[in-house]
């Protein structure tokens, strides 16, 4: 298996346990605002993410408004919403890049609050991948891997192969197409086997083969117990890979849908967003 050789014995062990435990309850998470969350959740041990009334304010703009949410370990959750809805802010919060202005929460048990960011290693695939342009794809991954010093050449080559890139390709990233950059970005997000994978518009610029590869990677990761959150404007893509979909607008979770009840996501989306705008 792709990640079977990653040198993170303890982490793998603990994650597998969480993943297998989570397999049964799949989509136990729910949005507090809309569907309620008991203070004593019996499945709390299996929760990857728990947000309680999280608000994020940038000067005069409120990006997230009292968002409450739980995500089960090993689940795949899609975030959809119009531009400026707060999707990227939510991903940044989960990635520990920002702390909330109000509210609290935890990511794999690591608490965050207005004075504290979440500090759990996550795999983040940003909307606009950023690399060192004159280095090759493999060299860029090596530079990131050197920070945690947990994986070696083999894992980097495996990650690149998994997304359809060649580890021996010496072409600098500046010569990459947008699709290749997306693939490289996905490789950097998954190469260190994160417990939480955050994908922001991952299908941007990917060709049809790339989109299929993306689906496979997301499903593989989730099958291994990794919690995946992906934000996308491509509703069909979200519908295809996600078990659960959160519709966000104006910094609020408008609807928390499981795949079964979603029906046509596009119809639900358009109706809800239109209602919200009114």
């Amino acid at each position: 298996m792709f990640f079977s050789t990653v040198k993170m014995g303890a982490a793998i062990g603990s994650r597998k346990a969480v993943g297998s435990a989570a397999a049964g309850n799949g989509m136990s998470g729910a949005g507090l605002d809309d569907v309620g969350l008991a203070d004593t959740d019996p499945t709390a041990d299996d929760l990857a993410v728990r947000l309680r009334g999280v608000t994020k304010q940038y000067r005069r703009q409120t990006a997230l408004k009292a968002v409450s949410l739980t995500l089960a370990s090993g689940s795949i959750t899609g975030l959809v919403g119009p531009n400026g809805a707060g999707k990227t802010t939510l991903l940044k919060l989960l990635a520990g890049l920002i702390s909330p202005t109000d509210g609290s929460g935890s990511v794999f048990g690591h608490e965050f609050s207005p004075h504290r960011r979440a500090m759990v290693f996550v795999g983040l695939m940003p909307e606009h991948p950023a690399f060192i342009e004159y280095l090759s794809g493999a060299a860029n991954l090596r530079a990131f891997a050197a920070i945690r010093n947990q994986i070696g050449e083999k894992e980097i080559a495996d990650a690149l192969a998994h997304v359809g890139l060649d580890a021996n390709d010496r072409k600098p990233v500046r010569a990459y197409s947008q699709g290749m950059r997306q693939r490289l970005s996905l490789a950097q997000a998954i190469m260190e086997q994160p417990r939480l994978l955050l994908l922001d518009e991952p299908a941007n610029g990917l060709d049809p083969h790339g989109v299929v590869m993306l689906r496979d990677v997301v499903k593989d990761m989730a099958a291994q117990g990794c919690t995946v959150v992906l934000s996308s404007h491509l509703l069909s893509e979200v519908e295809t890979v996600s078990e659960r979909v959160l519709l966000i607008d104006g910094g609020r979770i408008l609807k928390d849908l499981s795949l079964d009840e979603a029906g046509s996501l596009e119809a639900v989306y358009l109706e809800l967003i239109a209602e919200h705008v009114r």
């Binding site: 690591h110 004075h115 960011r117 500090m119 290693f121 050197a146 920070i147 945690r148 010093n149």
Partner: peptide, 26 residues
């Protein structure tokens, strides 16, 4: 914007001279 109190999670690189050296050289 109060500074975040950093509590490194397991597997995170702890602030160390080695890490500082690696980052600075890079």
């Amino acid at each position: 914007k109060p500074r975040g109190r950093v509590v490194p999670a397991p597997g995170f690189p702890l602030p160390s001279t080695k890490l500082l050296f690696r980052l600075a050289m890079f």
